[in-house]
Computed example of a mutant assay.
Amino acid sequence: MEPAAEILVDSPDVVYSPETIEARYEYRTTRVSREGGVLRVQPRATRFTFRTARQVPRLGVMLVGWGGNNGSTLTAAVLANRLRLTWPTRTGRKEANYYGSLTQAGTVNLGLDENGREVFVPFSALLPMVAPNDLVFDVGANPKGH
């Protein structure tokens, strides 16, 4: 998979500005009602506007109960990847990775290119998002002051 430098959606429903990406979307569904022995189906549409900031902010994570399974696993995964940790195993050297992370290891099929081949891009390339290695961890203060 070739890394995408940038993805731009060429659509009248997507507007790019230096600060934001704004997308209009129409969610379609149906309403079904029963009238005697007849099912009446009525199409429905709800319009949404999504606005995403293009500048990725710093993101802090405050973990309350850091010693639990979720907090310690998240912290260890980010630190192992940030520090590029490796370790020996019986089957060879292993290195930290984000396999299993939807945003870091997942891909999305954008469609077909001019040659009829499917084009896949990293999930993380779809919208501006914080990279996990840039997370800042802090211990939340105990509300009782302890």
Rank of each mutant, 00 (worst) to 15 (best):
G100Q: 03
A53I: 00
V108N: 06
L85M: 13
N133E: 11
S101H: 05
V38A: 10
A77D: 07
T107L: 03
Q42H: 13
G100V: 01
S72E: 07
G71N: 09
Q104R: 10
H146S: 05
F50I: 01
R44M: 13
H146M: 04
L102G: 00
G100W: 00
P3H: 10
L74Y: 08
P18M: 12
R93Y: 02
F137I: 07
G71L: 06
A4T: 05
V78D: 03
V32P: 03
S124D: 06
T46Y: 15
G116A: 03
E19P: 00
A105H: 11
G68V: 11
G116S: 01
W66N: 06
G36D: 06
L59I: 05
K144N: 13
D13F: 13
V32I: 12
S33C: 13
D113Y: 07
L135C: 11
T107M: 06
D134W: 08
A5F: 05
A45I: 15
R31W: 13
R24V: 13
V121T: 04
R47S: 05
L127Q: 04
R51D: 00
L102H: 00
L85P: 02
F120R: 05
V121K: 08
S17L: 12
W87C: 08
L110S: 11
V130F: 01
R28V: 06
V15R: 12
N115T: 08
R58M: 08
R117E: 15
G65Q: 07
D134L: 11
S11P: 14
N109M: 13
Y27Q: 09
G37P: 01
V32D: 08
R54C: 00
S17V: 09
E2R: 08
G68Q: 10
G60L: 05
T46E: 14
L135E: 14
T49S: 09
P3D: 09
G65E: 07
A45Y: 04
L8A: 15
T30A: 10
V121W: 09
I7Q: 02
M62T: 15
L85E: 14
E26N: 13
I7H: 04
Y16Q: 14
N70E: 07
V14Y: 14
R58T: 05
V78C: 03
L110G: 07
L110E: 11
D13V: 08
Q42K: 11
N97G: 10
P12Q: 04
N69K: 03
E118S: 12
